[in-house]
Design a protein around this nucleic acid. Structure first.
Lengths: 243, 243
DNA sequence: GCAGATTTAATGTCAGACAATTAGATTTGC
DNA sequence: GCAAATCTAATTGTCTGACATTAAATCTGC
């Protein structure tokens, strides 16, 4: 593992890449302890602060964790589904907001991918998943619920649907698609009538899952997509008129 | 934007979080220049190395970039689809390898999500997407192709299929699911007969897309999933017997 | 033996310095 | 006057050396 001191690239970036490669290729395994900062500094022939910057880069990606104390040091992290999801949600959210992705495009992506879960979720969902969905439907019907809370409940409902597929890889991949929509949804004001229509479709979807009817689930999701797209179109059109 | 000097958490982690929040909430916008390291150090009442560690954390997530020189500094990055995809592929790959995700689970996730693209891709794919897929099919038929190259070509084929949906959000979300399978596929040895069957299914899928037949595309993908799962089962069973 | 004090090895933080880079201002040559 | 060369200032990149903090291991007294 060597770096190029004459390269124009930052030494800390090079060191981070070298260690990252070692982790990805399995030369460093989970829970293995890296050499101490002083030893790494000596190995790469750089100062300790430079090594530290490299380690912080890796820590930001959850590739390593550090512990202080006598037996401390930097250890290769087991990348958990939870940590990966958190990162993915942050990245997806930023990607959508910074690239001015249209509501239409994001919505299409989200519902397309969610429909992919319908067959699995209809087959495998547990009573717990159904109960979680019913609970969110109930919450969504509460009067006085803010638009933001309504959207948050919507996200929870859909994540329960996705988790119903009981495939952690799918749950991970879809976390970004579902959660990143929330800021976009938050731009919409929901009238009581809008909410009623959405809740009715949520009920339809929950019923279909309870009956383990994959086709009806997919249909419900498609209807919800159409409803959401129409709603957004109206809201944005009204806003454009107002100025 | 303040931090807690008495918190047990690293100061550099706190500073990174504070700036990250500011970016996510839009208080710092794309291409905006952050204060210089010296100014940040003064503001947060920490030393420059500590600020630098925080900035390197953000740089590792592609949230900022730094420039040297008179008008240099740290700038908020526009998170590009490309950078986001690269990160997602790294994370997905590590997630699968470190958590010993079964071939079955990963394969199910990948094909479920890919089937979600079938309707859109059948409708919108361009001649370019078809050409890319045909080219990969041709490559896959070449004698003397290593297993690794065969798998890489497989990934390219499927990414062309996904890109055919012409929805960048979908392409981004699925990049991880498709690419992260490659290391798992690389564990399989493909006989000539295996390859022939896979190529035939690829042709079937390409034909369906050319005919803009969504249902046939989905069917082709399902058949390919079954084929892949069977193949993997055989390989792993044979390996288990051998020891 | 065991509780508490001590040692030790590691990360976390700091201060100050110098090197390298780059844009812009200034000077110089004609 | 204008273009090229030079200087200047601002900023990041890196280094050195030190001290603070943490936590496990070891020693000590009883």
């Amino acid at each position: 593992m060597k770096i190029d001191h004459d390269s124009p690239a930052d030494l800390s970036a090079q060191i981070a890449s070298a260690i990252r490669e070692a982790i990805i290729e399995g030369r460093l395994i989970v829970d293995e302890r890296l050499p101490s900062e002083a030893e790494l500094a000596e190995h790469f022939e750089v100062s300790r602060p430079t090594v530290r910057e490299a380690l912080k880069r890796l820590a930001a990606q959850s590739l390593i964790r550090t512990q202080r104390g006598a037996t401390g040091g930097a250890f290769v992290n087991r990348l958990s589904y939870e940590a990966a999801q958190t990162q993915q949600i942050t990245t997806s959210t930023l990607l959508l907001s910074m690239n001015a992705v249209s509501f239409e495009t994001a919505c299409e992506a989200r519902f397309s991918l969610e429909r992919a879960c319908a067959p699995l979720s209809a087959q495998r969902r547990t009573a717990d998943h159904l109960a979680a969905m019913r609970a969110e439907i109930h919450r969504q019907g509460q009067p006085g619920l803010t638009d933001e809370a309504f959207c948050a409940s919507d996200v929870t409902f859909h994540r329960a649907l996705v988790d119903g597929a009981r495939n952690p890889v799918i749950s991970y991949q879809l976390a970004g698609a579902v959660e990143a929509m929330q800021p976009l949804m938050n731009m919409i004001t929901f009238t009581a009538r809008d909410r009623a229509r959405i809740i009715a479709l949520h009920e339809q979807i929950a019923d279909a899952l309870e009956a383990q009817d994959a086709e009806a689930t997919a249909k419900g999701l498609s209807a919800l997509e159409t409803e959401t797209q129409d709603l957004a179109r109206d809201v944005f059109a009204a806003r454009a008129v107002k100025g």
